[in-house]
Design a binder for these strands. Structure first.
Lengths: 94, 94, 94, 94
DNA sequence: ACATGCAAAGGTAAAC
DNA sequence: GTTTACCTTTGCATGT
């Protein structure tokens, strides 16, 4: 529940600066959130289109999940290989 | 990495078409999910930057939430006004 | 922020009953949370013991993660097989 | 799944021993994680049961949080008292 | 169309 | 300070 830092013993210029910064951060985030929502809506549209073409969305989601898991696991396997190679001194520690 | 089953009583052409369509849907969605993740990461970066500048992220999130609520309320209010105006014949029905 | 249900127009007996019930639920949960914490501590102990024996805990965690992923993926694969079999009418829908 | 690398300059006996140890640690942890999950599920069940009886789970969680804070404060207090007693020679150091 | 249950994502807090 | 795990919340799908 803390507030914006130090607007008491600051010059008006500094306070105004912090205010502008705050406004900037807020607006940047809101802009990005908007873009994110747009993309989320696009995804929904694609699902709807696929459903309209006769595909089962539940199966589609399942496929996407598995493909994601595959990718994750590939990354994990590489991570553990690196870890072992480090342990064997075949790789310089990061 | 198995494909969709093509042992239904479909012509090879139709099966191949469905397969291409499926591939297209999957790839479109995966592409969009990637974009969504990029933006989510961007948002994280902005929060990190704000934190580094001395702002309290929890307070920032609270402000964003309030502003979002306000926006929602405004939208809802306008929707009701439109509805009334439609009912009164002051607006053409959508 | 709602409260315990209906303690206004209830007989003292009913109110007492609700109070006892509440106490019972709270205590059951607190008991379980305690057990959960004990086990979490046990896990930490095993990691510490392994580390003391010369094992790299980071590698251990990596192995555990992969084994978990394997299990999850096996379950997912079975789920999608079922889904396809349903789609092909080889399985009754759940 | 792959094992730990045994191409180090270790005797076969030593390598086999390490392998057994690793397996043991992994299995002990997985066993404990399973138990932890069981208890977490039990807790969920109790919340569900409470909800079914008409209690507001959000309020229940709030009560639990407050009681936990109280317990933590009490524990902290006792720790300080112990510390003082140790300092005064009224308690043997841990 | 609504309401409920479930799954995924994000946020928060703790552990290393 | 970074990462990881838990928990909360939200949105999505399903059924009535």
């Amino acid at each position: 529940m803390s507030d914006i830092p130090n607007d008491q013993p600051l010059s008006d210029a500094a306070a105004g600066f912090a205010k502008e910064q705050l406004k900037s951060f807020i607006e940047r985030i809101e802009r990005l959130e908007e873009e994110k929502k747009t993309i989320a809506d696009d995804i929904k549209d694609v699902f709807a289109e696929a459903k309209g073409t006769g595909f089962d969305t539940k199966a589609l989601r399942e496929i996407l999940k598995i493909r994601k898991q595959d990718a994750d696991q590939r990354a994990e396997h590489e991570a553990i290989v690196d870890l072992y190679m480090q342990a064997l001194g075949m790789l310089s520690p990061s």
